[in-house]
């Protein structure tokens, strides 16, 4: 635990020292708010109720798809590029301590960014009487979704010393995992393979779990999905690090 904390602290400091964290937070908040107000008619007078489900929580999934890789791309690639991996792995620290510490440092940055969208919650609460369940659900869904994208990036970055390659590959992977749960694509799968297969495919997508959770349905299977996806990706990270060494 202590080692995880030490690695976490250093990594988090680096994220904020290098300004990357600030850039990320500002861009995330600006974009998600802009999109909410311009494209989802936040102030639509015909809206039935005050809700964030379709106005605000529509966007984080699409933004995090490329912003989470931007936070995670340096986690391991940078260590390879500068050679500091040799320092880190010759310390009396288990590799998984470093992996988990770094992952949570990235997640903390994204967590701060997500939390920075809180004014919109105050706004809906002021304007109407929103369903708090869906708001909490939305936040939990967003956070889990971010964790999944970051874990995927983490795994990719353990396989390459190029930060740019890591960014491109991770964004592509996150995009593909989002795409397979988008209705037109789902319909295509249903036409080709039948409904069962289509459903099975989309159940592998973070997006379908995200959509379920932001409705306020934070169910056990959803959490199991995210926990296992993140654990698997972190395991892949350790495989990548081992492969890079030998």
């Amino acid at each position: 635990m202590r080692n995880i904390w030490i690695v976490f602290k250093r990594e988090l400091k680096e994220q904020f020292n290098s300004m990357l964290a600030y850039v990320f937070i500002v861009i995330f908040v600006l974009l998600s708010m802009a999109l909410t107000f311009w494209f989802r008619n936040f102030f639509d007078p015909n809206a039935q109720d005050a809700s964030l489900e379709f106005t605000y929580f529509m966007w984080p999934a699409w933004l995090l798809m490329f912003l989470a890789p931007a936070v995670g791309m340096r986690l391991w690639s940078e260590e390879y590029r500068t050679g500091t991996i040799e320092l880190l792995l010759t310390m009396p620290v288990a590799a998984w301590h470093a992996i988990v510490g770094k992952f949570f440092a990235g997640l903390a940055v994204i967590g701060v960014a997500i939390a920075c969208s809180f004014p919109i919650v105050i706004t809906v609460a002021y304007l109407g009487d929103p369903d708090n369940g869906t708001i909490w659900g939305g936040y939990i869904a967003t956070f889990c979704y971010a964790a999944a994208c970051l874990a995927i990036t983490c795994a990719v970055s353990a396989f390459t010393r190029s930060v740019v390659a890591c960014l491109i590959v991770s964004v592509t992977l996150c995009f593909m995992l989002l795409l397979i749960a988008v209705p037109p694509v789902q319909d295509y799968f249903t036409d080709v393979f039948g409904g069962g297969v289509s459903e099975a495919i989309s159940s592998f997508s973070m997006f379908s779990h995200y959509n379920e959770m932001k409705r306020g349905v934070v169910s056990f299977p959803n959490l199991v999905f995210y926990v296992s996806l993140v654990s698997f990706c972190l395991f892949l990270t350790s495989v990548g690090i081992r492969a890079k060494r030998s």
Partner: peptide
């Protein structure tokens, strides 16, 4: 290590303090 790798964005003493903590 051969190329003397360091975390370049840290100061000398905070880098050493980090390593000492890991130790």
């Amino acid at each position: 290590p051969e190329s003397a790798p360091l975390y370049a964005d840290m100061s000398v003493s905070s880098f050493l303090a980090f390593i000492a903590e890991l130790r």
